[in-house]
Design a protein around this nucleic acid. Structure first.
Lengths: 231, 231
DNA sequence: CCAAAAGTGTTACAATTACACCCATGA
DNA sequence: TCATGGGTGTAATTGTAACACTTTTGG
């Protein structure tokens, strides 16, 4: 079992043979919030193994590209957006997970303001899918989605990342709907407002909604960054 | 910017050129608990760039090896242990992080019962370091350690993973010392006991400590698995 | 004036914190 | 008998959960 010494990459200068290398990709679960519903952005695969199955947006990480940057690149290319919330979640690397050979993928989720997303191309039926309708997906993407969605549910309570799904100005009701969509449960309006306002993370813009056929809500802005992980 | 279509690995059958491949490693932050202190297992690097700096235990992931399995392999080879708590934390892949070229590493932390660890070889001064003494490390290993330690601090409260550091039978005081060592703060004894016992995750073994020069504590066993992620 | 959603406080309950004395053992 | 850590309960505080009516707007 244990030999006298281990030669490895942390302790010794070692040649990394080509056969030891793997392809590295990033896959992004891009969440958007459409009035009342959480959605993710998907395209169809053309691979014979997964013909017509839905897949996440991803790409190979380029030589000398930081994986985080690669994920931002995918987002920018697909949504036109630059300043979005992005968080690395988990790396999936089971052998056989990809028909093209050994492809290890780093999964990210990101939160975008869906109104700002201009889908510049609808190639491969790129479009938004309600989270509640997600069934089978290509590769292990269903598992990746599940992991990312769980992470989002934790993060919205712990770190209040939900603001990433909203425009800069929003009413408390919109914010509540975001929390409800992510958590999949309804929340008490008074308790929600109390809690959020007590956190002192919102700035009252002294403005109200317009063109709503009911009493307009006050508008707020999220103070500071959602967390340190912006690009 | 956005082209009409993107050819990528999720949608098209693509040749993965060799230059797109990277070396993939795993690095393990192996935590042990030595009476009153949290420690991690480190060795010294021989690489000229990091001569005599401390490094985590890691290795290249083998062709067709599941990264999780690779992490278990590293643990088994270095500690002789098989059934340990292991959790993937984050993947670090900044270009330039490793002098051998493009090496992307998946970081794990693991929790072992330090009494069971027989360091079969002391090559490269393999030994336990108090967490509080950790300073500089080779590569980006200091950052990896910080990330894993933070994760552990969250996990011990959320998922009570701390049991992984203890032998099967332990007293409540030992358990409390584990929590205190991980969190870096002292806890109230009565409140701690109340909380842990209320969770109904401990089995009273109807045994007591022996050979202690004070009133012996009752021994308990952790019911069920720490979480689903055992090997 | 009707429909729709905004705004607002109080009370009950649960969880957390703070805190001090006696007990069992080995030396 | 002394030193050491084990074992135990209660009261105060804080946080969470439940709950209903009035207001403002557009149609």
């Amino acid at each position: 079992m244990a030999e006298a010494t281990f030669k490895n990459i942390n302790t010794h200068a070692i040649e990394i043979d080509s056969y030891l290398r793997v392809a590295l990709s990033v896959d992004c679960v891009i969440f958007g919030f459409d009035e009342h519903e959480l959605k993710i952005l998907l395209i169809r695969s053309d691979l014979t193994e997964f013909k017509n199955k839905w897949t996440l947006l991803g790409d190979l990480v380029r030589p000398d590209e930081d994986p985080d940057k690669a994920a931002y690149r995918v987002l920018r290319d697909r949504t036109g957006l630059k300043n979005v919330y992005l968080e690395q979640v988990h790396t999936f690397g089971k052998p056989g997970r990809h028909p093209a050979g050994r492809v290890v993928t780093i999964a990210y989720y990101s939160l975008v303001n869906i109104e700002k997303v201009k889908l510049t191309t609808l190639a491969h039926e790129l479009h938004w899918h309600p989270v509640k309708d997600i069934r089978q997906m290509a590769f292990d993407h269903r598992q990746i989605f599940d992991t990312c969605f769980q992470q989002l549910q934790t993060a919205v309570l712990d770190r209040h990342v939900g603001f990433g799904l909203l425009p800069p100005k929003f009413s408390l009701s919109k914010l509540q709907r975001v929390y409800e969509a992510i958590l999949g449960e309804t929340l008490d309006r008074r308790n929600f407002r109390k809690k959020i306002l007590a956190m002192d993370i919102l700035e009252d813009l002294e403005e109200i909604e317009t063109n709503v056929s009911h009493r307009p809500g006050k508008l707020y802005r999220f103070k500071g960054r959602i967390n340190q992980k912006f690009c």
